[in-house]
Design a protein around this nucleic acid. Sequence first.
DNA 1: TTCCACCTGGACCCATGGGTGGACGTACAG
DNA 2: CTGTACGTCCACCCATGGGTCCAGGTGGAA
Lengths: 221, 221
Amino acid sequence: MSEPTEKPQRLKVIVADDQAAVREPLAAVLALSEDIEVVAAAADGTEVLAAVAGASVDVVLMDLRMPEMDGIEATRRLSEEHPETAVVVLTTFADDDSILAALSAGARGYLTKNAGRQDIVRAIRAAAAGQSVLDREVQDRLLATVRTRPSSPGQSLPADLTPREREVLTLIGQGLPNRAIAQQLFISEATVKTHINNLFAKADIRDRADAVRRALAAGLA
Amino acid sequence: MSEPTEKPQRLKVIVADDQAAVREPLAAVLALSEDIEVVAAAADGTEVLAAVAGASVDVVLMDLRMPEMDGIEATRRLSEEHPETAVVVLTTFADDDSILAALSAGARGYLTKNAGRQDIVRAIRAAAAGQSVLDREVQDRLLATVRTRPSSPGQSLPADLTPREREVLTLIGQGLPNRAIAQQLFISEATVKTHINNLFAKADIRDRADAVRRALAAGLA
DNA sequence: TTCCACCTGGACCCATGGGTGGACGTACAG
DNA sequence: CTGTACGTCCACCCATGGGTCCAGGTGGAA
């Protein structure tokens, strides 16, 4: 990750966007940076893959909405066949699905199209160096989807729950009825109800639905 | 996000690390970049807050493990009291909890200490511009925790739910009893039950607890 | 117009859930 | 030894949830 000098060579970049009105000026403005060399332009995913196969490419600046093969699929194939080539997504769409799909497919950056030239250049350099650059809103969205599952166990629950009560709460969180909980713990249904009543009082849980939410929020899945 | 010129002024940076052996050389090497000015150094979170209160600071390079007030807490307060100041975490630890905690607290970057000087400088510039830079492994971990809980909206639910049914399911997911749902939608409790029965059949939902889980999983929070 | 999807509502039934109070044994700390 | 916390269990009560069947009204599509 840490190279001795910043510019061992000019970074070879491909610009992929189906709209020529976006693609051409973008390529031109990137070429203004002396450490960046736009080696090809592509109008869809298949053209990207073909171009990368021909020459060693450092970074692909990828639009998501493209005909034939979209940016997601192209990114996926690229990260499989050419993991040394980094993908930076540049798109107008910043919805959760697109972000997750693109990053899961292996993208090392995600910018929206209101990013400035310097933002894009910085992302290209970072991606080439193995870092990942996200727009602020993109990171916020990514985090928001994570926060639904805090993964910090037991956080929002009072600490004075007994192990048994915690166990019961976990099973409630999995959607099991009292009878199934009783069978799974080898105790009677009456005992399950007792534990439930106790833990409801302790944790200020109103009913079963509330319990499911709290259990999930506390990471007791 | 997109500034007209790259360096309107030198970026004012604070280096926060409890170990002088790390802090001093880091500050020195950062000062080599002509667009970066190290305005202060701090050995714990309280010193960071004090330093930021004094001068307008662009970026804080923050270690996580610090005495008195750790980097997480300092980041949280900083992003509340001085949202214009960006935090880039630089630490040896890249476990899920630390990453999530730091980013949730408002950090705009997360680097491990095997990042090179150029990596750090790049992250500082990006953070100052409102972007977010993550190490490759950090992003991978972040994505891994996201993928365990896809939370891609509407995915796990059948598409043939009527708008009303979807609405009811959302309220169930919020833990509301039928009566409250009825009041909120200005319909009778009987109607709520009808919708519930229909959507349970359509979506293969067994009971209310199951409905809560499915609603949350589908992002109907 | 006829048909259908949707929203609305009511009646009924019974299983489940949730609340209360009490009981017993064990294990541990005072 | 005695109190306390915990886990186990029971009986009772009734509110809520969930299933079934039916039916009126609306609006758009065939």
